[in-house]
């Protein structure tokens, strides 16, 4: 059995903890991180907007790509330490939601965290990226709250008849 935990900034400890609780002892655990191109892309665009500067070697977007790779490796190290059992690390880069879906083909369980509005129960607790993954995952999904789940009182009122 393969259990994949999607490790994302800010929400990963809950995923690792869920693996520790729910994955069988014999399962192979994969820690997956995907670096999106959008943030370095912003820096590329800002530099391109500075007309006449030339010097592509000064383009901060390239620096952000390098820094992103470093921080992804550190993130997976931290996650592996917290997991405290043997695991495989997988680093990917590209459109995050599509890379996650592609990476979990053949997996028996995907563990992932909500990434939207965490203050109340409801559809907005999933951001666009996590929403895409939940909707398209080709495997069972364990969806966890990054911190304590909001109170049931935050449930929206039922629609009028």
């Amino acid at each position: 059995m393969i259990v994949t935990a999607w490790i994302a900034e800010g929400t990963w400890p809950a995923c690792v903890d869920a693996v520790r609780v729910h994955a069988p002892e014999a399962a192979d655990v994969v820690l997956l991180h995907v670096s999106g191109p959008d943030v370095p892309g912003l820096a590329h665009a800002a530099y391109a907007g500075l007309l006449g500067r030339g010097h592509p070697e000064h383009d901060p977007g390239t620096r952000l790509e390098d820094l992103g790779a470093d921080s992804a490796a550190r993130l997976l190290d931290s996650a592996a330490r917290r997991l405290g059992r043997p695991c495989r690390r997988e680093e990917r880069s590209g459109r995050v939601e599509r890379e996650v879906v592609a990476a979990v083909a053949g997996t028996d369980l995907l563990v992932m965290a909500r990434d939207g509005d965490l203050a109340r129960l409801g559809p907005r607790s999933l951001g666009p990226v996590a929403r895409f993954v939940v909707d398209h995952a080709p495997c069972p999904v364990l969806l966890v709250w990054p911190a304590a789940a909001p109170d049931v009182a935050t449930l929206p009122p039922p629609p009028p008849h």
């Binding site: 820096a43 800002a46 530099y47 000064h58 901060p60 620096r63 952000l64 820094l67 992103g68 921080s71």
Partner: peptide
Amino acid sequence: VVLLTPVVFA
């Protein structure tokens, strides 16, 4: 753009 953005990202 060139000097601060990478520091903010890091």
